[in-house]
Design a protein around this nucleic acid. Structure first.
Lengths: 180, 180
DNA sequence: TGTACATCAGTGAACGCGCGTTCACTGATGTAC
DNA sequence: TGTACATCAGTGAACGCGCGTTCACTGATGTAC
């Protein structure tokens, strides 16, 4: 049942993509490899033909999620434009294809070095893109604060059981970013 | 080996306290009941004499963590004072006794109804305390944004592998809150 | 107040289950001549 | 270009392990008289 090199590469890509969604949807620890391989259309036994461990996949899946996030932001993102879609109910209600940090932020803090490193690189890129290449210290500081606000707001808006409060949090964050 | 009612109540309290720390330290899913009971100085078999399920303990432990957090804030907290200790390296480096939302925010979003409800009540109290009982809509909005910024900043500061960047995030958030 | 009995907090072994990981096997793909 | 053989992607069963939960048991505590 050997597959061609191209087919194998495609399979690997599919596993990473499925993982990047599943981890954001259900959390890293709560997502099993068997479940994940099934989502990619495979049986679990083949996993180790592509990865050395679950941890390795976690790191790659996070990098992939971050890459997709950057792609969605476009070429010359502004804080206002990003905030508007980031702080939407659509984003809040679809963690699987949304921001990595809002989806599994607290789990990332406990992830292994390689994963945290991947997340760090992604975060730096995110901030740099929003700072628009500016080296102004104050502009960079504002971007860091804005990104914190966005990630925090979406995280809490997903916890809260009261839909009105949930929307209020997102709106308050957006308004605050618009003012600053 | 039956214990007196008072001793049993004290045991229960100890379990909840150990859980509230362990969950914040290691995450909810990653913390096992046996490990938890051991931390409370018991064997795991007795767990169900006190709780119906792990989920019930999770809800109570979150309520307890929130209660302790409110207590630490004192009577008349201001955004500035809270931000200063919340956005410190001390808080960042000690999730076990720190803010529930920063420690397990993304896991709370996937927790069961009772836990999310407990978290919601806690969050509302947190916001009300910071708003100082003000019913001004704009003041409340600013508090919601400030809380989002704080939670987001500590979450990311714990992920990032670069210590300089980690501190930069906390400082940027604090400065941003001081300006607003 | 003292005695007999029911209660139940805590122990430690055991339950089934799903986890991450390993392995023997299959057969199409890739390579060497 | 054709043939023989090595490679290896993917399958499915199995591994040991720790999980949440259950249970028979112990013996101090609480209750009833």
């Amino acid at each position: 049942m050997r597959k061609s090199r191209a087919a194998a590469a495609e399979t690997r890509r599919r596993i990473v993509e499925a993982a990047s969604c599943a981890f954001r949807e259900k959390g890293i620890v709560a997502t099993g490899l068997a479940e994940l391989m099934k989502a990619a259309g495979l049986t679990h036994g083949g996993f180790y033909k592509h990865f050395e461990s679950k941890d390795q996949l976690v790191a790659e899946a996070c990098a992939e999620a971050a890459r997709a996030g950057m792609e969605a932001m476009g070429d010359r993102p502004t804080v206002g434009a990003v905030a508007s879609s980031y702080l939407s109910a659509t984003h809040r209600d679809d963690p699987a294809s949304g921001c990595l940090f809002a989806a599994i932020g607290s789990e990332l803090a406990r992830a292994d070095e390689a994963t945290r490193e991947a997340a760090t690189v992604a975060f730096k890129r995110f901030v740099d893109a929003l700072a628009g290449g500016s080296h102004d210290e104050d502009a960079r500081r504002r971007v860091l604060a804005a990104v914190s606000t966005m990630i925090g707001a979406v995280t809490i808006s997903r916890i809260v059981t009261d839909p009105k409060l949930s929307k209020e949090i997102l709106d308050a964050a957006e308004k605050s970013l618009a003012e600053s």
